[in-house]
Design a protein around this nucleic acid. Structure first.
Lengths: 262, 262
DNA sequence: CGCCGTCTTGACGAATCTCAAATAAAGTGG
DNA sequence: CCACTTTATTTGAGATTCGTCAAGACGGCG
């Protein structure tokens, strides 16, 4: 019996370093039950480290930040100095253009790492905003760099983390470039389902943390289109919607929507 | 008086290592004229290295590959072992989904580095295909990793390169998620203009290496829409089109298209 | 010269956006 | 805790953009 993420996802509270460790561990989930929260889309900086390096890494984490709903973790243009591991709650990252356009680039839940967009030119190029009360661990990047130079496994994990961000964005590009509105919504719901499941929550019942408008921005749609499609999916028996509460009734049918070439 | 890239962009031929060096150098363009070809969108792995590390890096490059138009450099799913610096010619990278969809993820010209999508899980997740006869230098990634551990500047350059790929994709996401067809085409033309300019070619006159269909795939449009908009831009005096030859007549007006909020 | 892939252009239709109004939910101050 | 304000959501009708289908033109190449 799985917990339903009706309220908000929270990682079990322990020491700060342990919290981040959980957020970063992967494939070692058999040994540590808390790592069950972190399987697929996570960042895995600490996978397979030897004890010494792991201790070193633990010592990095000396600060954590509490954000209330709507508060900003970092703004576009802010100086980049650290990565942030989400300990509890969730964030959105927002892209801004000169001409006032904006778009939500990502929705990030507990166990994920954000802020890597700043590495390139020492400035964050998007802003991160809490969608609910959220707590993040601060991981100073210069020290990450240092450990990467001393430990090959850690270096590899860092590269993998960066590359996975590229992969994530590619998937979104494909969605935005080729999919119809219903396919986008279906993909979005299945992605959430998958991510909740890999954190130990129900894959078929969860609460959206974003408004219809934010979902639309993320998927390249208008809020009315999002609303209409959720209603349509409900009429067709695919899902059950109550406000931001979502229950997936037939995930096979949802997946079939993705196959429709027209 | 600038050369017009009427035929194809080719880096001046020298030794293999030097060719890659040019492709990767940045900000040192005052000292080496050949680096004028590589200013903005490039990868800069070798920026600011000391002589010793630079020599080390030079020795990496022992292979280059010649591709005829249409040939594949790597396929999706192929084992990742190296990055590729484009020495002459150009490539497209293509994303593929299980259900047969595909989309062009990037258009890469001489002086750019491709293949970094493979780092995450040791497999390339897109395929790279030559748009014309093309020559690439092979940069073995395990040795890149090794140098990164020994040299902090090099490590930083590597991180920057990865992060820039993220930035590039973000821009494309914004385009796909928020822009109208005319804004996408205008952005596409201005981006090419910018990149040709930073390689020492005319920013206002160049030859497209892709078909209308490929441009459409890249921008999330159908080929007819691309064709119609190029015609419209020509009618409006913004550009002059002859087949794949493009002359930008009024870049200010093109930029203004991006500001139209409607 | 004729074939084939590419490109242009038109007419039509479908998907999505825009505008608008009503309803529901969330937040606020007393 | 209630009344009130604000914000979010749903739904409809109409406009618009872009895609689809189709026909013909262009250009390169054997």
């Amino acid at each position: 019996m799985q917990a339903v993420a009706t309220h908000r996802i929270e990682m079990p509270p322990r020491s700060i370093a342990a919290a981040l460790g959980r957020a970063l561990l992967k494939d070692v989930s058999r040994q540590q039950t808390s790592c069950a929260t972190c399987k697929q889309h996570d960042t895995c900086l600490a996978t397979g480290l030897d004890v010494f390096t792991m201790q070193q890494f633990d010592q990095l984490i000396t600060t954590r930040i509490r954000l209330r709903k709507g508060e900003t973790l970092y703004r576009a243009g802010a100086r980049f100095s650290a990565l942030y591991a989400i300990r509890s709650g969730s964030c959105k990252t927002v892209l801004l253009t000169e001409d006032g356009h904006d778009q939500i680039a990502g929705y990030h839940m507990a166990g994920e790492m954000i802020g890597i967009d700043g590495i390139g030119d020492d400035r964050h190029e998007c802003e991160a905003i809490a969608l609910e009360d959220t707590e993040v661990c601060v991981v100073p990047f210069d020290q990450v760099t240092q450990i990467a130079r001393e430990d090959g496994v850690f270096q590899r994990n860092l590269h993998r983390m960066l590359s996975q961000e590229i992969t994530r964005e590619r998937r979104l590009m494909l969605l935005l470039g080729t999919m119809h509105a219903d396919q986008r919504i279906a993909t979005f719901l299945l992605d959430l389902s998958h991510r909740y499941q890999s954190r130990g929550y129900s894959p078929s019942e969860f609460v959206l943390r974003m408004t219809r408008e934010e979902i639309g921005s993320y998927l390249g749609l208008k809020l009315e289109t999002v609303s209409r499609l959720l209603s349509r999916f409900q009429r067709e028996g695919l899902i059950h919607v109550v406000g931001r509460g979502i229950k997936l009734l037939d995930r096979m049918l949802l997946k079939q929507i993705l196959d429709q070439s027209v």
